[in-house]
Simulated scan of single mutants.
Amino acid sequence: MEAARRHLSVTEEESKKVSGMVVPPHKSGEYPSFYENLSLRGLQIHSARPGLISCSFKVPPHLTDRSGNFAAGAIANLVDEIGYAAVYVEGTPMSVSVNMSISYLSPAKAHDELEITSKALGRRGSYSGTLVVLRNKQTGEVVAEGRHSLFAPPASKI
Score class of each variant (00 low, 15 high):
102 I>W: 00
144 A>N: 06
92 T>F: 01
2 E>A: 14
119 K>C: 10
144 A>P: 01
153 P>S: 10
72 A>S: 14
133 V>Q: 09
108 A>L: 07
120 A>N: 13
36 E>D: 14
88 Y>F: 15
46 H>C: 01
52 L>N: 05
42 G>A: 04
41 R>W: 00
64 T>V: 13
130 T>H: 01
152 A>C: 12
144 A>M: 01
123 R>K: 15
109 K>M: 09
144 A>K: 02
57 F>C: 04
62 H>Y: 05
83 G>C: 10
158 I>Q: 12
32 P>G: 10
149 S>T: 11
125 G>I: 09
156 S>K: 11
33 S>F: 02
7 H>E: 12
134 L>I: 08
44 Q>M: 01
100 M>E: 06
36 E>I: 04
44 Q>N: 02
79 V>K: 09
108 A>H: 08
48 A>M: 09
125 G>Q: 12
116 I>V: 13
75 I>K: 03
22 V>I: 13
20 G>R: 06
129 G>V: 10
93 P>M: 09
48 A>H: 13
134 L>Q: 06
114 L>R: 05
37 N>P: 00
117 T>E: 13
156 S>N: 10
79 V>P: 05
49 R>E: 15
152 A>N: 05
141 E>N: 15
109 K>P: 00
102 I>T: 08
116 I>A: 05
42 G>Y: 03
45 I>H: 03
145 E>P: 00
110 A>V: 07
93 P>L: 09
118 S>D: 04
32 P>W: 05
128 S>C: 14
155 A>K: 15
147 R>P: 00
90 E>L: 07
49 R>D: 14
140 G>H: 03
50 P>I: 06
49 R>C: 12
19 S>E: 14
81 E>N: 10
75 I>Y: 02
35 Y>M: 11
65 D>Y: 08
13 E>A: 15
146 G>P: 04
80 D>Q: 12
148 H>L: 07
61 P>H: 08
105 L>V: 03
125 G>T: 11
80 D>E: 15
92 T>Q: 15
115 E>A: 08
72 A>C: 06
95 S>Y: 05
143 V>E: 08
24 P>K: 09
69 N>M: 11
78 L>M: 13
5 R>A: 12
120 A>I: 02
